[in-house]
Design a protein around this nucleic acid. Structure first.
Length: 573
DNA sequence: GCCGTTTTCGGCCCGACTGTTTTCAGTCG
């Protein structure tokens, strides 16, 4: 069972407990356990299989009660406790919590007093005046609920990092353009580089907060203003993106950005540490009694708490706070460490740019090398190359390499891993290439066992350098293949195979926690863009963000090596 | 329901906004 599935069940339990007005701290325990499990690199089911409930109870936030619930879930595939809770509260009532302004109390009141049990029923009750029968609900609230339901209905859930980040950057530019916002910073899960994000949070300082709010709320593309105050405004843009802008004083900027960046669990733990030191942390600063002792910068805030600076991408309460207190955080990889890109396509297959155009674009980014890795013959939809075409392409690369100085194009291929784990090209041909990437493009619906064996067999081929997009997921569209990722990582460690972190915004595969797991087993990662045109090369920053979330350093990543070192690394005995 | 360099019992992060209210509960981040 995936950790995310398990975490999901625990989240659902916490929601239902909240609606039943259980002890708030019990509710928090379930939430905390869910978050911890979600961020855990090791598979909880495996932990349980190896060490039983005592092993579970060693995990942070899991005690006797929760280990029993988790055992039940692992053994039966469902939670009898959750099933019991759901009997009393229909799923539709829980769904109403997604409506802005409807929380657990109101949802239950609607259900108990008016028998409203779906979002649709809520909308019609709002429209036909039934809602006003409830105490404490007047016209304004009814109006807001109608608006919120409509927003909920045409909101398409989460947005890709690769979609949200450029959008947010454009808004920041517009805010800073006319000098009203002296400083603006993207915060929230976007700053933490999560693979999908809900809202965009922007923090700004300004000499003229009122004017800045007026500017923000009149930006092009705004569909609706959800709130507009002196220091905070919230707007919904026509692509469904919800953007919050907050303005704070310069001297609060650090503590405010830390607070608005989150994650929630990280903030809670930071505040607890503050309390244990006789301090108080809020978005307005770090306080000793009434005296502000830090807040202008985030560095200052962490220093005041006796900690190392924690980069935003690590702030998930997954060990970063403990490490920062011991000054043991890794020096995370940075975009500028990248010296080349080892996975891209040209117009010989499904790319749109020529090899030379790709090379020149990469050189312009400051890279020393790239690998051209077009598809192999079996990937028919992408126009995969046959042996003869690949040999011709290798000749072309030799010719282009002579033309471009101070830069090297490696001869590569993205070779299909066939259903039996063999490769789409014979070893004799693979041996002529500088780099071989192997990946799966068909036969997704195999059992976990078969799929794991298939990939492991490919890794055992001595010519295979990298496994590309190892889990095959497409975020929001396709689940990962059924594979035993821990086994795959162990085998990669044994064979010295590199695993890819594919930077394509809807892939980000390996994902953050798997990167961390690979690093711990000593497996090297290659962060590649899988570009199909020259613009795609810029996707590298999403891969870097994910790598940082996975605690990777420069030395964990092979395409930070210079060309000579890389060629040595790619040599197989 | 979890947790412990003051604790195995008594705590558990902090503050703003909204809509409804004359002092606050609910919601949100």
């Amino acid at each position: 069972m995936e950790n995310s599935t398990l975490a999901d069940i625990l989240f659902k339990i916490s929601t239902l407990l909240e609606m039943k007005e259980e002890n708030p701290f019990k509710i928090k325990s379930y939430q905390k356990a869910a978050v911890n499990i979600e961020n855990l690199p090791e598979n909880v089911e495996e932990i349980y299989k190896k060490g039983g409930r005592p092993a579970l109870e060693k995990l942070d936030g899991i005690g006797k009660g929760l280990s029993e619930r988790i055992e039940d879930i692992i053994k039966t595939g469902r939670s009898s406790y959750l099933d019991k809770l759901r009997k009393d509260i229909p799923d539709g009532v829980t769904e109403m919590l997604n409506i802005q302004g409807v929380g657990p109390k109101l949802a239950m009141k609607l259900f108990r007093s008016l028998r409203i049990k779906t979002v649709e029923e809520l909308l019609s009750a709002a429209k036909n005046g039934k809602l006003k029968k409830l105490e404490g609900i007047e016209d304004k609230k009814v109006f807001n609920i109608i608006k919120a339901v409509e927003n909920y209905k045409n909101m398409n859930e989460k947005h890709f990092l690769g979609e949200a980040l450029p959008y947010a950057e454009t808004i920041v530019k517009q805010i800073e353009k006319n000098g009203l916002g002296t400083k603006a910073l993207i915060c929230g899960s976007l700053r933490r580089m999560k693979e999908t994000i809900g809202d965009i949070d922007i923090l700004a300082t300004s000499e003229h907060p009122g004017d800045l709010m007026a500017l923000f709320t009149s930006l092009p593309g705004i569909k609706e203003i959800a709130a507009k105050g002196k220091t905070k405004s919230s707007a919904i843009f026509d692509n469904g993106m919800n953007v919050d802008l907050r303005v704070v004083d310069e001297r609060e900027f650090g503590s405010a950005s830390h607070y608005f960046t989150g994650s929630k669990q990280h903030n809670i733990k930071i505040r607890k540490i503050a309390i244990s030191k006789g301090l108080k942390v809020s978005e307005y600063g770090v306080f000793k009694g009434r005296k502000r002792i830090a807040g202008r910068t985030e560095e200052e805030l962490f220093k005041a708490l006796g900690m190392q600076y924690v980069p935003p991408e690590l702030r998930e309460d997954s060990g970063e706070i403990e490490a920062a207190r011991k000054r043991a955080l890794p020096a995370l990889i940075d975009l500028k460490d990248i010296k080349g890109d080892l996975h891209m396509h040209s117009n010989h297959t499904d790319g749109t740019a020529s090899i030379e155009e790709m090379a020149k674009a990469a050189k312009k980014l400051g890279y020393e090398y790239i690998a051209i890795t077009d598809h192999s013959r079996s990937t028919k939809v992408a126009g995969g190359l046959n042996e003869k075409e690949l040999l011709e392409q290798m000749g072309e690369i030799d010719r282009i390499n002579k033309k471009i100085s101070g830069f090297k194009i490696l001869k590569g291929a993205e070779v299909d891993i066939l259903k039996d784990g063999s490769l789409d090209f014979p070893d004799e041909l693979l041996s002529k290439l500088d780099i071989v990437i192997a990946s799966i493009h068909s036969g997704f619906s195999m059992t976990k066992d078969e799929m794991t064996k298939r990939i492991i067999k490919a890794m055992q081929n001595r010519f295979v350098s990298i496994i590309a997009h190892p889990t095959g997921r497409l975020i929001g569209r396709r689940m990962p293949y059924e594979i035993d990722i821990e086994n795959v990582i162990s085998e990669a460690a044994r064979t010295g195979t590199v695993l890819e972190l594919n930077s394509y915004p809807d892939r980000l595969d390996l994902k953050d926690i798997h990167c961390r797991m690979a690093k711990e087993k000593g497996v090297k990662i290659s962060i590649n863009t899988d570009s199909h045109n020259t613009n795609n090369l810029s996707y590298m920053k999403y891969g870097i963000g994910t790598a940082r979330r996975g605690w990777l350093t420069k030395k964990d990543v092979i395409n930070t090596l210079d060309l000579g070192e890389l060629m040595d690394h790619l040599e197989r005995p």
